[in-house]
């Protein structure tokens, strides 16, 4: 199997798809790094803290699209060129071929993630008051590893079992659906259990020159506080047990994890260890499923 891996890695570094997808990821990482610098040196110039850890997982959202597309094109070429058949004829077993391909795809994901972290870290040196917390950063990256494995496992399964010309389109649609679903669920879960009655209430929002807003409420000419406002049950509120199901789906599926790891969504009940466990389970399940189905696949 070491020869298979050598061949895969040699092909990986010569593959135009690896570099094209890497360029897309790098472009995204540099944009994020530029945003971070603009925040840190502009509005938050006087703030001393860790700017990098919260952004370390930002690569997860584009990776949900880029890695499956890369896998579809990179592994699809093996079918197109009959390389898979040649490997099996040469004496390698199907599970070796499958695992070698999975490792290659996972390696590509790790390289993209590494490039993202390097871009952020290099930018960190330009922030005067940045506080380096390598422990927190390392822990965050460790939690990202299972995510990369899960996405690699799903991508490899699809690429090794589906021989359609339209496979890249299918994976893009699937990735878009996996990213859309948690956003939709999050929007539904955002409704609180009660809603404020605003009839007869005047709301004044004052925005100062620093961009900070202050809300005040007036009723019948008298200022009242937020807590004193009348409340009624919110029909849009998602109660139990559906709430738990939605939250589990957001934590278990790669799409939701991508938004949690990039801190694009608040984590109501999710936790990084829980997400890591779900990702490792998904990676194992999809790998076992992929191995079993690939064993029976007709390679003619």
């Amino acid at each position: 199997m070491s020869k298979l891996l050598s061949a895969n890695f040699a092909r990986l570094f010569k593959s135009i798809w690896f570099w094209a997808c890497g360029l897309c990821m790098l472009g995204y990482s540099l944009w994020k790094a530029a945003n971070m610098l603009s925040w840190a040196c502009g509005m938050w110039a006087g703030y001393s803290g860790d700017f990098i850890t919260s952004r370390a997982g930002d690569f997860t959202v584009p990776m949900m699209i880029v890695l499956p597309v890369f896998s579809a094109m990179f592994l699809g070429a093996e079918y197109h060129n009959n390389t898979i058949r040649n490997k099996i004829i040469a004496g390698y077993s199907r599970w070796q071929v499958y695992l070698a391909n999975l490792i290659a795809v996972a390696a590509a994901g790790l390289i993209y993630a590494g490039a993202h972290v390097l871009a952020l870290t290099a930018s960190g040196f330009f922030i005067p008051l940045h506080v380096w917390d390598m422990g927190a950063l390392t822990l965050r990256l460790i939690y990202c590893l299972p995510f990369i494995l899960a996405v690699s496992a799903i991508s490899t399964l699809l690429s090794m079992l589906i021989r359609l010309r339209a496979l890249p389109v299918l994976v893009i649609l699937l990735s878009a659906a996996l990213l859309w679903l948690p956003q939709n669920l999050f929007e539904r879960l955002s409704s609180g259990p009660e809603m404020v009655v605003t009839d007869g209430v005047e709301m004044v929002v004052t925005v100062d020159d620093k961009g900070e807003g202050e809300h005040t409420y007036w009723k019948d000419g008298r200022e009242i506080t937020w807590d004193d406002l009348e409340r009624v049950p919110n029909p849009q509120y998602v109660g139990e047990p559906l709430r738990t199901v939605y939250l589990f789906l957001m934590e278990a599926l790669p799409g939701g994890q991508a938004f949690y790891l990039s801190e694009s969504m608040g984590m109501e009940r999710a936790s990084f260890p829980g997400m890591a466990a779900c990702s490792l389970t998904l990676a194992a399940l999809f790998t076992v499923l992929g191995l079993r189905l690939f064993r029976r696949k007709d390679l003619n």
């Binding site: 009839d199 209430v201 020159d209």
Partner: peptide, 23 residues
């Protein structure tokens, strides 16, 4: 202008008003 104030009146209509540095 330096700052803006959004006022939602009793009818629910939004009105934009302007303020100087002292509010």
């Amino acid at each position: 202008v330096v700052g803006t104030v959004e006022v939602v009146d009793e009818k629910g209509e939004l009105d934009l008003r302007y303020v100087d540095r002292e509010g």
